[in-house]
Amino acid sequence: MSDTLSRKENEAKGTQKASSQAFGEEPNPSVIHRTSDEIYVGQKYSDSGKPSGKSETKKKESITKDIFILVAITLVAGCLLGAAHGVTKAPIAQAQADAKAKAQREVMENADHFETLYVLDQTGSAGDMTIPASVEEAVASASLATTTITQVDGAFDADGTLTGYVITADNPDGYGGNVTVMCGISPNADGGVTLEGISFLSLSETAGMGMRAREEWFVNQFSGKTLNEGELLLYTKSGASRNNEIDAISGCTITTSAVTDDVNAALITAWKLSPDQKEDGK
């Protein structure tokens, strides 16, 4: 309230108050250092704060003009964005493909080349490569309803024989978003599988907490694990004692749970697929 009063006072007295302050008649500390130049500077600022009279007289005509200008700006911005998208579409696709290829190499080191076998049919155009319904059912029935298998690649050796699968599973229940894990799994002769390794395609957890899932000690738990058919992984906070147990990240149960769900979904997919492949004699 004192501010409003002083504003009215200032407007009434104009520059006189300022100049009287400059001579120290009122003990106003904020003007101790003022010179006449400063008074001019102060006035200039207050003048620029007022709206110019011009826009008021043109009020009726200017609405259309204003709208036109805004539309023009938005149009130009839209064109620029379209151009930028066109330029960066290829590099973005390339970067994503590179990341996937790198992850494939990481999880299945011995393979010679990879070939996509199945993909998640989101646009209705996957055709023969749609993930088999039996796989999706098996994943859903194992209490992994939220986890989806997005891609299954076959890992082939130099002869063209299928040596294993690289399965990408996605779980939306991470702490900070989706957790997408790529798992390399190779079937064993006795019906079990070996989990070769995992790699994260998408992990956006809290740094120092959930992001620790990328640390070596955690990822190595999933490397070279031999599991019998039907055996799923469990996470434990009290020290992994059995073969199918892994240590959780302390304080990050949600992240650990999402990762474990992804890996288990991949395991189920591998079991479902390997008898089929063997029967086909591939």
């Binding site: 200008i69 805004l70 911005a77 839209g78 620029l80 964005l81 960066t88 973005i92």
Partner: peptide, 25 residues
């Protein structure tokens, strides 16, 4: 009076362009 909407359009466009560039490169 079209200050705010215009500023937002300009700023959002640049952010999206930088977003594309970062994602690609």
């Amino acid at each position: 009076r079209m200050r705010m909407p215009s500023y937002i359009v300009i700023i959002a466009s640049f952010v999206t362009i930088v977003d594309f560039l970062m994602q690609g490169f």
